[in-house]
Amino acid sequence: MATVNLDHLAGRRLLSERDRSIGYIEEIIAEWDGEDLVVTEFHVGIFAAFERLSASTIGTALLDFFGLRRREGLYRIPWDKIDISDPARPRLLCSDQELSGFKAGSQRRKTSR
């Protein structure tokens, strides 16, 4: 059974197939599937720590204040499009074209809790 430490993914740089940097892994989304908690998608963006802090209203207020929330380049990438078998070097498994389809809109906050 292959296992991987999800905590090691936090803040890692994600590289595309052509070694282009996409951003940093900001958050890992999981959902209940019956008894199991399964990883469904990864949030990849340019700021590593802010995702955690956004739980607080002031965090988001700060992001808004600095205009960081409507930043380009936040991706919500489904679990099967990233190879995480080596958590120190996560890799994107799809083309740049497909990737642009994962670009998050402004409604991305809705996923919380």
């Binding site: 936090a10 803040g11 890692r12 740089r13 700021f47 590593a48 720590a49």
Partner: peptide, 9 residues
């Protein structure tokens, strides 16, 4: 560092 944190330990 703390704020820009986790990025690359």
């Amino acid at each position: 560092f703390m704020i820009s944190s986790n990025c690359n330990e």
